[in-house]
Simulated scan of single mutants.
Amino acid sequence: MADEKKVLIVIAPRNFRDEELTEPINYLMQAGISYDVISTTCGLAIGMMGGEMPVEHTISDLNEGDIAQYNAILIVGGNGAPEYLWNYRPLLELIQKFDKQNSIVSAICLAPAVLGQAGVLKGKKATVWNDDQAIEEIRKGGGIFTSSPVVVDGKIITANGPTAAAAFGEKVAVSVKNL
């Protein structure tokens, strides 16, 4: 179906934050929005709380045609985000492609730092986990840091951590549904 809504979810292969994945997925499913989960490597990704997510495709596997089928990208945080996702060139390029196609670009917890690194936050308000280095990445990328739990600025949606996961998931699902 041409009008089917779809979200690409990016997680770290280790130590992604479980509820930052599961809560948004719950809202996407309730809204009838499909999703795919990718990472930097294939295999079984393991969350900080022990949750497991099978990953069949990597960020590097995607081509332009693949990207065009998605309405949004959602990047999950957790302790694994700085290690596996920050400064990861294929992810930064992927974020830029989503931004260029005017899709929703969203990230939670420590993951919004990659939005700053990708250069998509210039002049945009964004939030991130209360971590000096993560906040600095937002600012270095031209973003305006705010400490609100969830921030929506145009098609950029950010959230500051696991306690905001449900509200973040709801905002992403509603935004995608309204495209």
Results as ranks from 00 to 15, higher is better:
Met48His: 08
Val172Lys: 07
Thr22Asn: 11
Ala165Val: 02
Ser60Ile: 13
Gly142Asn: 08
Val152Met: 13
His57Thr: 00
Glu64Leu: 10
Val55Gly: 09
Val114Asp: 00
Lys5Thr: 05
His57Gln: 14
Ser147Ile: 05
Met53Tyr: 10
Phe98Thr: 06
Ile38Arg: 01
Met29Ile: 15
Thr22Glu: 12
Leu21His: 01
Arg139Lys: 15
Asp61Glu: 14
Val128Glu: 03
Val152Trp: 00
Leu115Pro: 02
Pro112Tyr: 07
Ser39Lys: 10
Asn71Ala: 09
Lys100Phe: 02
Ile73Trp: 07
Ile11His: 04
Glu19Tyr: 08
Asn178Lys: 07
Gln30Leu: 15
Leu8Asn: 05
Ile46Cys: 09
Val120Asn: 01
Arg14His: 12
Leu44Ile: 13
His57Pro: 09
Ser103Tyr: 01
Lys124Glu: 14
Ile108Phe: 11
Val10Lys: 03
Glu83Gln: 12
Leu92Ala: 10
Glu64Gln: 12
Glu170Ser: 05
Pro149His: 05
Tyr84Met: 01
Met48Asp: 00
Thr22Met: 04
Gln96Glu: 12
Ile33Thr: 01
Thr22Gln: 09
Ile104Asn: 07
Glu83Cys: 03
Gly65Ser: 14
Arg17Met: 08
Met53Trp: 06
Thr146Tyr: 10
Ser60Gly: 09
Arg89Tyr: 12
Glu56Val: 13
Ser39Arg: 08
Ile11Thr: 01
Leu21Gln: 03
Ile135Ser: 03
Asn87Glu: 14
Asp18Val: 06
Val7Thr: 06
